[in-house]
Simulated assay, not measured.
Amino acid sequence: MFKLYDISTAIRPDMQVWKDNAAVRPTFENTSNHQTGQTYGTRIGIDAHTGTHLDAPLHMLDGGATIDTIPLQDLVGTARVLDLTRVVDAVTAEDLKPHAIQPGEWILLKTRNSFTDRWDDGFVFLRADGAAYLAELGIKGVGTDALGIERSQEGYPTHRTLMRAGVLILEGLRLADVPPGSYFFVLAPLKLEGIEAAPARAFLLGS
Rank of each mutant, 00 (worst) to 15 (best):
Q102D: 09
P57L: 05
A176Q: 11
Q153F: 06
V88I: 12
F125S: 15
K110H: 06
F123Q: 11
A176K: 08
R151K: 15
E154A: 13
E150N: 08
G166K: 05
I169H: 06
R86I: 07
T158H: 03
A135V: 00
G155R: 00
I70R: 06
L75E: 10
A132S: 09
D89N: 15
G141F: 05
D55T: 10
D120E: 12
E150K: 01
D62H: 12
T78H: 13
Y133C: 02
H99F: 15
T78Y: 07
R164C: 09
V88P: 00
A135Q: 01
I169W: 04
Y156I: 05
S152C: 07
T116P: 04
I67K: 04
E94K: 09
D121H: 12
I139V: 13
D89C: 12
A176P: 06
W106G: 06
I169M: 13
K97M: 13
V142P: 00
G143W: 00
A79R: 10
R151C: 07
W106I: 02
I101Q: 05
L72R: 15
S114N: 08
A65E: 15
L147W: 02
L137A: 08
D83W: 01
L162V: 04
L108G: 13
A165D: 00
I101P: 05
P71I: 06
P180A: 06
